[in-house]
Design a protein around this nucleic acid. Sequence first.
DNA 1: CGGAATCCGCCGCGATACTG
DNA 2: CAGTATCGCGGCGGATTCCG
Lengths: 127, 127
Amino acid sequence: MTTPNNNERRIFFNDDKCPIRNVVLQIGDKWSALILFALVDGADRFSSLKKRVVGISQRMLTQTLRDLEREGYVSRTVYPEVPIRVEYALTELGRKLVKPLYQLVSWADDHHDEIKQNRKAYDENVD
Amino acid sequence: MTTPNNNERRIFFNDDKCPIRNVVLQIGDKWSALILFALVDGADRFSSLKKRVVGISQRMLTQTLRDLEREGYVSRTVYPEVPIRVEYALTELGRKLVKPLYQLVSWADDHHDEIKQNRKAYDENVD
DNA sequence: CGGAATCCGCCGCGATACTG
DNA sequence: CAGTATCGCGGCGGATTCCG
């Protein structure tokens, strides 16, 4: 993080040097965080994940898993049985990421009602 | 958070009951987190924010500020001077949100290089 | 079973022009 | 100064079909 002074308080960069851009944006999409939490309790296979992450399409599950694998948060292991079995699991990096992410989600859970009330009040005043 | 058991490990809902959907998605967009951190050091006015949050367009600054205001993270105060002055500041809720969010960003900063290496290695193997 | 490929609608976001 | 209005593109993400 930058150490702001009173004269120049510009913050963060709008490119790949910015940790917000590189992490918050990555897991801030529609499915990443849900999948990460789905793997907290242990490895799971593709078809099971598809059932547990309710509402996700096959395409997005594949794509998001690929992205998470590329970041290094998730590992992919193929068991050449019949039928084939593929298991996904959190890597060491993924497990470490989940901790601060869980703090954020936990906060969200605690303040969920307050936020929903804020939205309602805002929408009513705007009409 | 749910307390998973071994038989049924389904997690989170794919609707507005899900805290991930309601908070992580909201601040996981392109500009929200950047704006929140830009306000950590104190209130700031529209034009100053536009300069400090490098690369943001007028339209997205307005829109994101409205969204953050609706959630209750940011307050908007109009000073009817000439020329007019509008100041944005974190609310109490916004200040509380920044704490776990900062933990996540700080983690991102610490592991930024590792993640970039993971991406590079992944892309090289895929070709 | 675990994908890949294709098609396509929606909308997040930027650029530009105009306003009180 | 602090917005609003309009237009348009690119890409996210869903539905469907096909494959080893």
